[in-house]
Computed example of a mutant assay.
Amino acid sequence: MEWWLIYLLTGAFVGFFAGLLGIGGGLIIVPVLISIFTAQGFPADRVIHLALGTTMATIIFTSAASLRTHHRHHAVDWQIVKNITLGIFVGTFGGAALASSMTGQLLSIIFVIFIFYAATQMLLQFRPSPIFQLPGKIGMFLVGSIIGTLSSLVAIGGGLLSVPFLTLCNVKLQHAIGTAAAIGFPIALAGTVGYIANGYLQSETLPEHSLGYVYLPALVWLVLASMLTAPLGAKLTHSTKTAILRTIFVVLLYGLGIRMLMSLI
C-alpha cells in the first residue's frame, strides 16, 4: 500500500486532462503503471500486461461518466452504437487474448507506435473530411472488430480511432465525439473481461491482489482520484489556457513515448 499515493496522483492528473481535453487517460496511465509495477518487483514479462489490463478496467468508470454526459446533451447516435457493438465485443475480447500471447517487448513496441500516432493527431488536431457514408451492418461489424482489437492492445477507449472514422463517414463532429464516448464503454467492458480471463492462465506468476491482469489496488486509487478531478478539468474546457494545456499534454505524450522507446533500445 506504500504506492497508493503515486496511484492517487496519477489518477488525479489523468482525470483532470480527460475532463479538460475529452481524451482517455490510457496513454498516460500505461507507461506510469509500467514504471510503478517494475519498481514494485512484479514479474518483468507480465508488467505491461498488468498495466494494460488495469488501465482498461479504469476506462469502464470514466467511459460510463462520459457516456452519461453526452447522452444528456443528445450527442449519442444509439443506432451506430447498436450496429458496431457486436464487432467491438468480438475485437476487444480477441485483442486481449492476442495481447496475452504476445511478449512484453512486442506489446511495448505496438504501444510506442500508437502513442506517437496519438500525440501527432492531437498536435495537428487532425479531422478527416467527410467523404463516405456509414457502412451496413457487416461493414460496421468489421470496423468495430478492428477498433476493438487495436483499443484492447493499447488500453484506450477507442475515441482516437472511432472519432476519425465517424467523421470520415459524414457524422457531425459533436455526434461523433458523443457516439465514440458511448462506444468506449463496451470496449472497456469487453477488454477488462478479456484481460481478467486471460490473466487467470498466468495467475501463479501474478502479484497478490490481482484479478487476472487487473491489479486491484492500483485500480481503486486511480478511479477514485480521476472521478474527482475530471469535473474540474471539464469546467476549464472553454478557458483560454486550454490550448497551452493541450500542448503540455502532447509534449508529455511524446516524452513518455521517447522514454519507452529508449528503454526498448
Rank of each mutant, 00 (worst) to 15 (best):
A182C: 08
T55E: 08
L264T: 05
A181S: 15
V193D: 01
I113Y: 10
F89R: 01
I187L: 06
T54G: 11
L5R: 02
Q105F: 10
T54R: 07
I36F: 11
R46M: 14
W4R: 04
M260R: 04
G11W: 03
E204L: 09
L161K: 00
G91C: 10
A181E: 12
A225I: 01
P217D: 03
G41M: 06
G157K: 05
T167D: 02
I29Y: 06
F116R: 01
V214K: 01
S129I: 12
I34G: 00
L228N: 01
Q121W: 02
V30M: 02
I29W: 02
G194H: 06
Y200R: 07
V143E: 04
E2N: 13
A155S: 03
A181V: 12
W78C: 00
H175Q: 13
K82N: 01
A65E: 06
V81K: 02
L216N: 07
E2C: 00
A181G: 04
R46F: 14
H71L: 11
L150C: 13
F249Y: 09
M260W: 10
G255R: 05
L256N: 00
T38A: 12
V163R: 08
F111Y: 08
F37D: 06
G199E: 08
S162C: 10
H74Y: 10
L219R: 04
L142C: 01
H73R: 13
V214E: 00
G136S: 11
R127M: 13
Q79D: 14
F126A: 03
I156T: 10
Q133A: 12
P207T: 06
F249H: 02
Q79L: 14
A176I: 05
L189G: 09
S100F: 14
L264H: 10
A97W: 00
F249W: 07
A18R: 08
A99K: 06
H49F: 05
A39W: 09
M227D: 04
K82S: 03
M227V: 11
T62H: 04
I187R: 00
G53V: 07
L5N: 03
I80G: 07
Y254V: 11
A64V: 13
M102S: 08
H71A: 10
F185N: 05
I196G: 03
I88E: 08
P164H: 00
I28N: 03
I248M: 14
Y254K: 10
T55V: 07
S108A: 12
Q174D: 14
W4P: 01
I48A: 02
I115D: 08
V32H: 02
P164K: 09
I6R: 00
G19A: 10
I88D: 03
Y117L: 12
V32Y: 00
G91N: 11
L142S: 09
M1Y: 09
T237C: 06
S239G: 00
V193R: 03
S226A: 11
F89W: 12
S35H: 12
K172S: 13
A181I: 13
I110M: 07
L222N: 01
N198W: 12
A188Y: 01
V76C: 07
Q105S: 13
P130R: 10
S226T: 14
L98E: 07
A180S: 15
A96H: 04
